[in-house]
């Protein structure tokens, strides 16, 4: 293999580091997106036998959004292996204990259960807030688009912008706002 070909090989199989912002995202929906990047399925060179998976850094995993009343209804099962060792943890309890666990389990479940899955999971980094260690952040060169729009709170919009926003009608002067 000539020097030029060798460099071509490095370039084609180079690992890219992606960052994904979990803020207000459905973990089970975004797991399907993250999975593709972890396994390399977004690349035209993808093949199950070649090692072309990328690294994904998830941030803000504390601020994920579950659908409906799933925080109260969804249970995570664990069994210690001893008799009577079964336990069911509700999603809100699990999220209080470890805010990275729900997104981790969602990505793990989204992938097919084979020998490669645990190695692919090693390429997933999850942080519950926006602060990521410097040595990880310096590798990041790409961002994965979210699936849902992050809503903006009214008190986070500058006051001037709110005042200029078109109004359908004005409240009467004697109207008492709660």
């Amino acid at each position: 293999m000539s020097a030029a070909k060798r460099v071509q090989q490095w370039a084609t199989f180079a690992r890219t580091w992606h960052i994904f912002d979990c803020k207000w995202q459905d973990p089970y929906e975004s797991a399907n997106i993250i999975k593709k990047y972890l396994m390399g399925q977004h690349k035209p060179i993808y093949h199950p036998l070649n090692d072309c998976g990328d690294v994904v850094v998830c941030i803000n995993s504390r601020e994920i959004a579950l659908r409906g009343d799933e925080w109260r209804k969804r249970a995570y099962f664990h069994h210690t292996g001893y008799p009577g060792g079964a336990s069911w943890t509700l999603a809100w309890e699990l999220h209080n204990k470890d805010p990275t666990m729900i997104i981790k389990k969602a990505v793990y479940r989204a992938m097919k259960g084979n020998l490669q899955r645990r190695h692919t999971m090693q390429r997933l980094f999850i942080y519950h807030e926006e602060n990521v260690p410097e040595d990880i952040m310096k590798n990041v060169s790409s961002q994965i688009r979210q699936s849902r729009l992050v809503p903006t709170r009214l008190d986070h919009i500058p006051e001037e912008e709110v005042k200029q926003y078109p109004k359908v009608m004005d409240y009467p002067k004697d109207y008492v706002l709660k």
Partner: peptide, 24 residues
Amino acid sequence: WTPFTFKDPELNTAELPSSKFGAN
């Protein structure tokens, strides 16, 4: 193909994470 083909050149100087490249 390499990971850099068809990439938006703006990504080279962008401060990640940014809502411009992260929002749907």
